[in-house]
Amino acid sequence: MNDTSLTNVSNGIVAWLFGITGPLLIVLSSAAKGGLSQSELSSWIFSIYIVGGLLSIILSLYYKQPIAVAFSIPGAIIVGTSLANHTFQDVIGAYIITGFTILLLGLSGVISKILRILPTPIMMGMVSGVLLPFGVNIITALKDDFLINGAIFLTFLIMTFFSNSLKKFPPIIAAMIVAAVLYSIFRPISLIEVTLSVAEPQIYIPSFRLATIGEVVIPLLITVIAIQNAQGIGILKSMQFDPPVNAMTNWSGIGSIINSFFGAHSACIAGPMTGILADTNARNTAYTGAVWMGILWIIFGLFAPIAVTLTSIIPASLILLLGGLALLGVLKNSLELSFTSNFKMGALFSFMITVSEIEFLSIGAPFWGLVGGTIVSFVMEKDDFRRVG
């Protein structure tokens, strides 16, 4: 790839590192809650990373935009609860129905129409609310390990200060190098318990039970379309990209259907990881970061059995720090787009509801942020709606 740069490679590595740590822990927790076997868990992890990696590469190369396809994080939480009350095969049946529903909605074009009607500041208010905790994580990481993480943060600040002179050396790469050196000296990581083994994915035959479908499909559908995909689309718009909404929805549906037969839950556009990949001055070549991330995800998926031990080895505070630093630019841009034009009150309520992390009807706060922000804006900012009407 001639368009590859050190910045794009570093963004791809950070996005990959983010995707195999915190989000994976939620999958592991849900699998434990549902009592899945090691082979079932291995197949689940194999699919979400292999399918996500392949679709990230394909979509990013075709549309020349940094499109990160992954798996629904709040969806994994919903699945964990459902697995505790329903059989694995019944839940897989609900996965399949969810995937086909997402695909049909994408083919109908209704999603792109809804997103065109939804005011951008309200959407960006939701995105800002989702991303704010990642910024706060920087402070949390400094509190957890002030000396080492403080040195990493200081390195990032120094490299940012001299960024005009060091255009080809991204500050996040310098932070990662310093982190590797400091942790190897002061917090050495043991690799004794890690053994390499290749994944052996399983194909599962679904069963369809009305009670399971009623409990799983609608919440999972909303987390994919109105929470995860809306984040990714909003972030790309905030970074001056033109995201292919219908295609992103279609492929989320196709990826979800494929995942289903391997015992894995829904595929979607990954908001925070898309933000990491899109945060570059070289907008025309940002897509290569997603390609590198996709390659790394495929490799990780092939060695899914080591995921549990590998995830437990990487220090949590380091992931919090690097993820927060990588998303700083995107958080700044989304906040600016939320509050520098019309619909400011709607954007504020969208932001506040999302940050509150409330949950209602098994649906997370980002969705209710969009709903509540739109309603408040419609009541309090009628003139703004008239101007765009």
Rank of each mutant, 00 (worst) to 15 (best):
I177M: 12
S266R: 02
I173T: 03
P244N: 11
I177W: 06
L157E: 11
I233R: 06
I185N: 13
L182E: 08
L154G: 08
T140C: 09
G253A: 09
L166S: 03
V216C: 05
I148Y: 14
S260D: 08
A270S: 07
L147F: 15
A226C: 12
S207M: 10
L236T: 02
D145V: 10
A247G: 06
I276R: 01
Q228F: 06
M159K: 03
P201E: 11
H265Y: 08
P243K: 06
I269V: 13
I205C: 12
A226W: 03
A270F: 07
A175Y: 01
L221D: 04
R187C: 12
M273D: 01
A175V: 00
F186L: 15
G275I: 02
I227A: 10
F162T: 15
I254H: 06
A199K: 05
V216Q: 05
F162Q: 12
S197C: 12
F161L: 15
T274V: 04
A180C: 14
V178C: 10
G232F: 03
I177A: 10
I258P: 02
A270I: 02
I158G: 13
I205T: 15
L142M: 12
Q240M: 09
T160D: 03
T195H: 10
F186R: 15
L191M: 14
M248W: 07
M248C: 11
T223K: 02
S190F: 06
P171I: 00
T249K: 05
S184H: 15
L142F: 13
D242N: 09
T160N: 09
V217Q: 09
S163T: 01
G271C: 04
I276A: 01
G214A: 10
N229S: 09
R209N: 13
T140H: 14
S190C: 12
K167W: 01
P171L: 01
G214F: 08
I139E: 11
Y183F: 15
N246K: 12
F262T: 08
I173K: 01
A211D: 11
G234Q: 05
Q231W: 02
A180V: 13
I218L: 13
I254S: 06
I177Y: 05
V136G: 03
N149E: 11
A174N: 01
F208Q: 07
N259M: 09
A264P: 07
T195N: 13
C268Q: 07
A175I: 00
P170G: 00
L277M: 05
N149Y: 15
I258D: 02
Y183C: 15
V194L: 15
P201F: 08
I205V: 14
A230H: 03
G150L: 13
K237S: 12
P170E: 00
I138F: 06
